[in-house]
Nucleic acid binder design. Structure first.
Lengths: 112, 112
DNA sequence: ACACGACTTGCACAGTTCTTCAAGTCATGT
DNA sequence: ACATGACTTGAAGAACTGTGCAAGTCGTGT
């Protein structure tokens, strides 16, 4: 049952490898959100949101609790904020180095 | 004309979401390596290694140069090291919370 | 010019992940 | 007890990713 570390890391990053899941984590790292609040911010089917939340729950990155008829999610590991920040840093470095990728990346950027 | 940032982030993390690519980045963040050196450390087919290197090249996370008959790779963004460290931190947090995966995480965790 | 080692690329097959629809659960208000 | 709003789950097909083999390129030494 020995899962090598690099394997665990890969799984971990894979969990972050989806736009909706990134959005969720960013919103949750600001403050806790009920599912319907997330739904209002992220343009996606309820069932799809639920699927992505399930992925994040499975990897223990978020936890949910019931609160007066709603389900409220929160990040279980506060360091997630640091990680997203580190990613932002690297990303801006890469973008700056490439200089001109921004234009190609714009389709559908209206949303955010 | 801004990139949907969460989309770019997701792509970025997706790039990290593969055991071989994690290994590669860890090795390269120690020092530059020629392909055949990577091959000696990572147990995969040459063509598979090459494919994964291509993925990392495409996302500008590594660069390659030819050097006396060999191809040498290096990380192009030094902050990658920080990112891997941040991931390690979160991972150990999650693991500690879950309790019993720790043993598996020790092989080679001395350095990384 | 030729062979060889060091890599990379193309490709087909297999496995994995996403998306959506339909159905199901659960707690609250009437 | 029933309806409703708030979510979750199951499942099927589409889309994407990874793997290994065969073939190809590139540079160096003979």
């Amino acid at each position: 049952m020995s899962i090598p570390l690099y394997q665990a890391k890969a799984e971990f990053f894979k969990t972050l490898g989806h736009p909706a899941r990134i959005r969720i984590l960013e919103l949750l790292s600001e403050r806790d959100h009920a599912v319907h609040e997330l739904l209002a911010e992220i343009a996606i089917e309820p069932s799809s949101l639920s699927q992505q939340l399930a992925v994040l729950r499975r990897t223990s990155m978020v936890v949910s609790r019931r609160d007066s008829g709603q389900v409220v999610y929160s990040v279980s590991v506060p360091e997630v904020r640091d990680l997203l920040a580190a990613a932002r840093l690297i990303l801006s470095g890469i973008v700056a180095a490439q200089g001109d990728l921004e234009d190609e990346l714009s389709p559908m950027s209206a949303v955010h």
